[in-house]
Design a protein around this nucleic acid. Structure first.
Lengths: 127, 127
DNA sequence: CCGAATCCTGACCGATACTG
DNA sequence: CAGTATCGGTCAGGATTCGG
């Protein structure tokens, strides 16, 4: 596991030594769409096409992939309604909802600092 | 910009409409090592080789790249000490330090939920 | 000790076409 | 409406080597 200088009250288990939890989590949410989808679901369940519209730029394939792997990890549930036409709802589990807290914090950081980063990047590139 | 259902007190500027800040931030920190490096620097400046040891598994090339792009974005400073052998310190700027708050929240989430995710993934894969 | 330059591979992901 | 299947390009990032 990474040397993260954890506070003393964190119990480091055996499995953490082999797979750094932070590394795992970053591999988990570090793809192009996972964070977006989780944030879009933070206010309640949404349908496939609704998510597709809200996550501007995502392809059908990537939305399916993203939702599947979130379901696999127990972060959301998939509910199929046997109607015509079909209707599928996606909703965060409690674990998934708990993830929205750090991600929302990250969203707020990005809103507050995105101008500073843009400016700093531009001035760096001038040289 | 992504339809993120922002709280009404957030002012959405023109530049945000063109470049979604969350998308930008995720592109920024979504690579394999940025978050790790920022977290490793949260308690103060560290040297190159020190970081290389702490970030288990990183290559020299990627550490250099990661540090450069963080410097470019104004999130850390690079200080070269003209000694023999050379010595270079990296330290977060105030903006960089402010980023450690959401990232530390993410670290804590990963420590708390990594077992749940592992278990859920395993049971999903059994079917 | 710190870093630049090259080469190279796998996977991420978009485009497109097709189903119940 | 909500997927699945297939193909292929691009690119992050690892390995290695060389320089100050």
């Amino acid at each position: 596991m990474m040397d993260l200088r954890l506070p003393p009250d964190v119990r480091v288990t055996e499995s953490m030594r082999e797979h750094c939890p932070l590394r795992d989590t970053l591999d988990r949410i570090g793809d192009r769409w996972t964070v977006i989808v989780v944030v879009l679901l933070r206010d309640g369940p949404r349908r496939f096409t609704d998510l597709r519209r809200a996550a501007a730029g995502i392809s059908q394939r990537m939305l399916t992939h993203t939702l599947r792997s979130l379901e696999r990890d127990g972060l959301l549930t998939r509910t199929v309604h046997p109607t015509v036409p079909p209707r599928v709802d996606y909703e965060l589990t409690p674990a998934g909802r708990s993830l929205t807290e750090p991600l929302t914090a990250l969203l707020h950081w990005s809103l507050r600092h995105h101008e500073h980063v843009r400016a700093s990047r531009a001035s760096y590139d001038d040289r």
